[in-house]
Computed example of a mutant assay.
Amino acid sequence: MKPLSPSQRRIHQAALRLFAEKGVSQVNISDLAQEAGVARGTIYNNVENMEQLFKQVASQLSKEMHERISKSFADLQDPAERLASGIRLFIRRTHEEPQWGAFLSRFAMSDASLREMLSSQATSDLLSGLQAGRYSFRQEQLIAVISLVASATLGAIFLVIEGLKTWREAGSDTAELVLRSLGIEEEEARRVATTDLPALAPLG
Rank of each mutant, 00 (worst) to 15 (best):
R9Q: 15
I11G: 01
I11C: 04
H12K: 04
Q13M: 07
A14H: 10
A15K: 02
R17G: 05
F19E: 03
F19V: 00
A20F: 09
A20N: 05
A20D: 04
A20T: 09
K22F: 15
K22S: 06
K22Q: 14
G23D: 04
G23R: 13
V24K: 10
V24I: 14
V24E: 06
S25R: 15
S25M: 11
Q26G: 07
V27E: 01
V27M: 07
N28Y: 14
N28A: 03
N28R: 11
N28E: 10
N28G: 01
N28S: 05
S30C: 05
S30G: 09
D31R: 11
L32I: 03
A33P: 05
Q34D: 11
E35F: 15
A36M: 11
G37H: 04
V38N: 06
V38D: 01
R40F: 01
G41R: 14
T42V: 11
T42C: 05
T42Q: 01
I43Q: 11
I43Y: 02
I43H: 04
Y44L: 07
N45K: 13
N45M: 12
N49L: 10
N49G: 08
M50I: 01
M50H: 00
M50Q: 05
E51S: 13
E51L: 11
E51N: 14
Q52C: 03
Q52H: 13
L53D: 02
L53V: 03
F54E: 00
F54M: 01
F54A: 04
K55N: 15
K55W: 02
V57G: 02
V57H: 03
V57E: 09
A58L: 07
S59L: 15
K63W: 10
K63P: 00
K63V: 12
E64P: 01
